[in-house]
Design a protein around this nucleic acid. Structure first.
Lengths: 214, 214, 214, 214
DNA sequence: GATGAATGAGGATTCATTCAT
DNA sequence: TATGAATGAATCCTCATTCAT
């Protein structure tokens, strides 16, 4: 069974294609496993099994579970960026805060609902302060994006304050997301509204120069 | 097939005495281990070792890891109750909301700082909706207490709304606690203030009949 | 089949008996495996299998393969000491060198033939200078014993010279042992004589004050 | 990525050229890896990586790890032959034994120092008697050369005695080499002298008809 | 020839849990 | 009661080797 050498010249790295497919396949499998069992309990063997490949294959592309999660997080962030634009669209000052936050939350929730693995990856550390690299990366990225968004809301604030506010907002969002995902239908909608209310009321006084809804 | 001893409220048996000591010893060890490694990563063997007893002894008192965490959570709740009174002292209507929430948070934080294992036990589920029994018990208890506290704040609200608000508040508190424990000194104090602000602003409109601070 | 409880008072740790037996059993199994496959290729699972226990049992007594080898080496050294006396019986100055070395080699070889695992444990490092802990321990012990033996032979020598000579002698012995073990019958005997000759001729000029055989 | 075939004036089989380069490249890489990790611990993947080629390429030239080592050993032996002449230059009977052995050792050591992989390949078997093919080849070659060298020293000796003496000498040399490579500077020089002394004293009585240095 | 993907058995090690004493 | 030995499946990860392209 010799190969066909005539197709060779136009594909400088055809073989990487298979690898790329495998990587995508593995990441999808990992996402499924993370959603089913949570990040901590997920095992590399389970991911390989879910992907229908041998453990060795997994390790050809990822050195360990952490790396899988990091890559998965990276891809999610990029997809988020592609979908919603850079820096969460620095808010138009004319938009009422309520509307701005409401739509931001809606978009975030839409994304998280479509990519439920996000929750598993964002899940906080088991021990306060000690965060796995995975979460750290994703967390930092999200914090950065939030900071730039908040900076436009809090023009006079010190950077440390913006950072702190970003952490608080992300915390609120994460715990809210947990509640939203745990419910369905009208109850879910009600929780969505609660998140918005919490954030709007928390941020309204900080966005002092911005006109409220009424 | 002995019955479940935890359902029996009074036990005058004297051998229980040594058993009680053992149980306390094991729970203290478990608390230490949970704090050090987190609940998921904690192993029963490690707990037994930390307690200075053999694995077999541990299993004489607890059927599994879960049961240890549940009992630990129960005892913490009881201690909390003993320390701060039943139902979080239904708030005196004359107290300004700001003060009420501020002192409630302070007391909670004091308790959590003194019992750092609380964080490990309260740590949310890895998968939304699916909560380990451990956290479920503790969570339900805290929610109940919060509900009764909030009920006094939101006299006209529907029970479902009170429950929902309780969940939101607990979520905010948990994520806030994580941030507080992850920092020290002035930064920690700043985060404490943020939690209070978030909750106050969130609850102020709900406590419509209550006089605000100004 | 309960044990006899009346023997209990004199045995403060009877339960260790089972453990001790297991340890002996594991060490014997390890010795067999080391002899069969060599130290490097030996696996803990293979040792456990050979001992007829589960991998977990092995790890209850030894943290890793290294530890097994070290303990095995220790026991061998102790047995050697018990059998042949402390410090290889500092040689009677009246004994001719030839006799002294000859009988020392004979005794060493007898021991090594009876405990073939000794060879596997003494086997030098794969990379010069970098020695596994196992071999290091055993090696150091043997070197020490040789040093004290040689010190009585080389009264005026500097310690560094004694040490160097000890290393050389041990090297000769090890490589000789390899040859001896690789042969049988008359050929083996011939190799035994060669080792003796090498050592005698090497050491004779160093033991300057000692009377030769003639 | 075509090579330039026009620079090669005559090639009975031009693909061999690239192949030879690949083989050399792989052998160099293997030598480096063997020196770093030892033969047993070296992995074919590691060798391929070190050589900058894919595992598949390695297996196009060598059927397994053993074959790499054997070929490496062969080339070393040939290089040794090219450098020091056939049969180690059958010793001029007029040369004093001391000088002959001294310079032979010096040359061997020079070669081994320049080709440190020699040590890894010569490293004795893990199990006495059972020698890997690799070492066997190399060993046999060295023994042969030693035999012919010794034959000129021991004119009247039976072939079996010569063979035995060759094995003993090689053993001494190998264990000595280990000591030499493990030390540096003056201590290394001292060990070199020890090897020489051991061999000279061992061989002097066998070379009965040869005049000593005095 | 060359590539890199794929394999899968096997490596060391852990752990919740049970059992004999 | 209490001990500590015992389990064995499951963990992560590696490796020599083969295969499709």
């Amino acid at each position: 069974m010799p190969d066909n050498p005539q197709t060779q010249k136009e594909q400088p790295r055809r073989r990487q294609a298979r690898g790329e497919r495998r990587i995508a396949q593995l990441l999808e499998a990992a996402a499924r496993v993370f959603c089913t069992t949570g990040y901590t309990a997920a095992s590399t063997n389970a991911i390989a099994r879910e992907a229908g490949v041998s453990p060795g294959t997994l390790y050809q592309f990822f050195p360990n579970k952490e790396a899988i999660a990091i890559e998965l997080g990276d891809r999610l962030v990029h997809e988020m960026r592609d979908t919603y634009g850079e820096a969460l669209a620095p808010i138009d000052p004319a938009t009422p805060l309520e509307t701005a936050i409401g739509s931001a939350i809606d978009r975030f929730l839409a994304f998280n609902t479509e990519h439920p693995v996000f929750f598993a990856l964002m899940h906080g550390p088991d021990i306060p302060g000690r965060m796995a690299e995975t979460h750290d990366q994703l967390h930092s990225t999200l914090i950065s994006r939030l900071e730039s968004l908040l900076a436009s809301l809090m023009p006079g604030a010190a950077p440390a304050d913006v950072t702190r506010t970003a952490h608080v907002c992300l915390g609120i969002y994460k715990s809210g997301l947990e509640l939203v995902l745990a419910h369905e239908g009208a109850e879910r909608a009600a929780y969505v509204q609660e998140i918005k209310d919490v954030l709007i009321r928390y941020l309204a006084p900080l966005a002092c120069d911005r006109l409220g809804p009424g």
